[in-house]
Computed example of a mutant assay.
Amino acid sequence: MISADQLVLFIAAGWLLNLTPGPDVFYIVTHALRSGARAGLVAGLGIAAGCCVHIVAAALGVGALLASSATAFTVLKWLGAAYLVWMGVRMLRAQPGDGLAAVARSAQAERAPATPLVQVFLGGFWTNVLNPKVALFFLAFVPQFIAPDTEHKTLAFLLLGLLFNVNALPISAAWALGAAWMARRVGALQRRMHWLDRVAGAMFIGFGLKLAFTDQPTA
């Protein structure tokens, strides 16, 4: 289904994406800062549950796509490539003062009362499920690692999607456990996240270009 080199690349790209601050990271960090590490961990589990919905839906869609017309494949291929390049450009253009540090300052300033953990979990779940960019990301990213001659493409997509999701859990936990440390070192965090954005941006532009020149897989 996938070579060892491709598997390592897939895991590394997933970790890099999950390390890069985005809506999911902001949600985890905000709740960890407001209510402690346990709330951050629960927020991460809610987001992971939401990702499972996107993975199953995208897998079924990809299975149908790979058996459909060349026109349908081409349209989705270019949409996915454009999305990955757009995401990469945004990361490259991110400024050191943007994003995560502002969330940390805002969460600390509000000093809101602790949110019930069930509500934290459901909030992470629905925040992820209702974000169409997550579905588009899976449709654009995962098929690049499925060999054209794979017999069961839908199953391959499901397994890779679930692997991506499982690999995201320790990163989400690290964000939650490290939220207090990050709040005390906002300036250092801004500088490190800025360079991480640059690396991730270049990587996803590369994935977008790779997808743009991918031929239609055979049924």
Rank of each mutant, 00 (worst) to 15 (best):
R93A: 15
I55Y: 00
S69K: 04
V75W: 11
Y83F: 13
V75I: 15
A58I: 01
M87A: 13
G50C: 03
A48G: 09
A102W: 09
R90I: 08
A104W: 08
A102R: 15
G44E: 06
Y83C: 04
A82H: 06
A67E: 15
A43P: 05
A49K: 07
T74N: 13
G99Q: 01
G40I: 00
A70H: 12
P96I: 06
W86L: 14
R38C: 11
V42L: 09
V53R: 01
R105C: 10
R93P: 04
L45D: 12
C51L: 15
G88K: 02
L65F: 03
P96H: 06
L65Y: 05
K77T: 11
Y83T: 07
R34A: 12
I55V: 05
V89I: 14
L92H: 07
A67K: 12
R90W: 13
G97N: 06
A81F: 06
L41P: 03
G61N: 10
A64P: 09
V42N: 10
A101V: 07
G97M: 10
A104G: 13
G46V: 05
A94N: 11
V56N: 05
M91E: 13
G50V: 00
A37C: 09
G63M: 02
G99K: 00
H54W: 03
A81L: 07
A101C: 11
W86V: 14
T74Y: 10
Q95L: 11
L79W: 08
L41I: 07
G88Y: 05
K77N: 13
A81N: 01
L92P: 02
L92F: 04
M87D: 09
T74W: 08
A72W: 13
W86R: 06
A102P: 09
M87H: 09
L65W: 04
R34P: 10
W78Q: 15
R34D: 13
T71R: 15
A58E: 04
G88N: 03
V75K: 07
A72M: 14
S106Q: 15
L100M: 09
A101I: 00
G63K: 01
G99W: 00
G63W: 04
R105E: 13
W86E: 12
V89G: 10
A104P: 07
A43C: 02
L45N: 09
L79D: 12
A49L: 03
K77R: 15
A102K: 15
G99S: 02
A64F: 05
R93G: 11
V53M: 01
L66Y: 12
G63Y: 03
V89Q: 05
A49N: 07
L65A: 08
A58Y: 01
G97S: 10
G99F: 01
V103M: 10
I47Y: 01
G61P: 02
A37N: 09
I47R: 00
G40F: 00
I47E: 00
A58L: 04
G63V: 01
A102E: 14
G80E: 05
L60N: 14
L60K: 08
G40W: 02
S35K: 02
G88H: 05
L66I: 11
I47G: 00
S106E: 15
A32Q: 06
G40Q: 04
A70C: 11
